[in-house]
């Protein structure tokens, strides 16, 4: 069953939509990556799904319920979100930050964390390996650690759907890999449906059940990574020449950029071979 259904979505920040005529579905336990060039509408789409942009038209069903008829606290039980940028102003600790994911589940506004809440918070911090940092303040953490804290907060929210906006941005190669391995684990072990907006194609290919390419706010292509990716498609979407190779470890396509000089060489080789 579809956990998320988006039909004829138009969304943006004023009356001119950033994404338009957009349809997508997300099934339980699916890993869907939304890719596309800068400005194609990836982040707007992720925000629109949660009702976070001021201009939205169309139909968004979350677990069968109409998003526009749901209260914020109801949406928070279905969707958890990891934003691209998070600059804390006040010095909350890691534990306090993760615990905020449980506020909407507490019996009343004056009650403190229940045993179940505490367990969820500790488990979430344990999964993303930030438990030892729980008394540290967010401003004392590195970018990678902070990103993991945000994922822990999303996990503690205990929702069937996880939405992430460019989770690898600002992270080095090691952390990028760690974050995606963690997301894959959550998909496989916890059955989470994951939707990621990501510009780094090579990073998402091995982990995605399905890819969606956006261009100018519309879906340009959709499918499984192994069958969908072609050099022509990448050229059409990103306006860049690439070479598709097989990744040695995953046996899946991997994108290699063709630099201008290399391109000339290849063309020369081709013309020589034709002669």
């Amino acid at each position: 069953m579809n956990l998320l259904t988006v039909e004829n979505l138009e969304a943006g920040y004023d009356s001119r939509p950033v994404v338009s005529n957009l349809n997508l579905t997300l099934e339980g336990g699916e890993f869907l990556s939304v890719c596309g060039p800068n400005g194609s509408g990836k982040s707007t789409l992720v925000k629109a799904i949660q009702g976070l942009v001021p201009f939205i038209k169309g139909k968004i069903l979350i677990d069968g319920q109409n998003l526009f008829q749901m209260k914020a606290a109801q949406i928070a039980t279905k969707l958890a979100y990891v934003p691209q940028v998070f600059e804390p102003v006040f010095d909350f600790t890691v534990e306090e930050t993760v615990a905020m994911a449980r506020y909407h589940r507490q019996a009343n506004r004056f009650s403190h964390l229940s045993d179940l809440d505490k367990q969820a918070v500790e488990e979430a911090m344990g999964i993303v390996l930030v438990y030892k940092l729980k008394h540290k303040k967010l401003n004392e953490l590195s970018g990678g650690e902070r990103q993991r804290v945000l994922i822990a907060r999303a996990l503690a929210q205990d929702t069937p759907i996880l939405l992430l906006d460019e989770p690898s941005s600002h992270l080095d190669l090691n952390f990028q890999l760690q974050i995606y391995q963690l997301l894959k684990r959550l998909q496989e072990e916890k059955g989470k449906a994951i939707l990621v907006a990501e510009h780094n194609l090579n990073l998402v290919i091995p982990y995605s059940s399905r890819l969606i390419f956006l261009k100018d706010g519309r879906v340009e292509a959709e499918g499984k990574p192994a069958s969908l990716l072609t050099e022509e498609l990448i050229k059409r979407i990103f306006q860049v020449d690439v070479e598709l190779r097989e990744n040695r470890s995953t046996r899946l396509p991997e994108i290699s950029l063709i630099h201008t000089d290399t391109k000339k060489e290849l063309q020369e080789k081709e013309s020589l071979s034709k002669r």
Partner: peptide, 19 residues
Amino acid sequence: KDMNLLSLGDETARTLGCS
């Protein structure tokens, strides 16, 4: 508690259940 969420920014606050 809502103020704790608001102090993280409106987007984050909404996704954590704050009206």
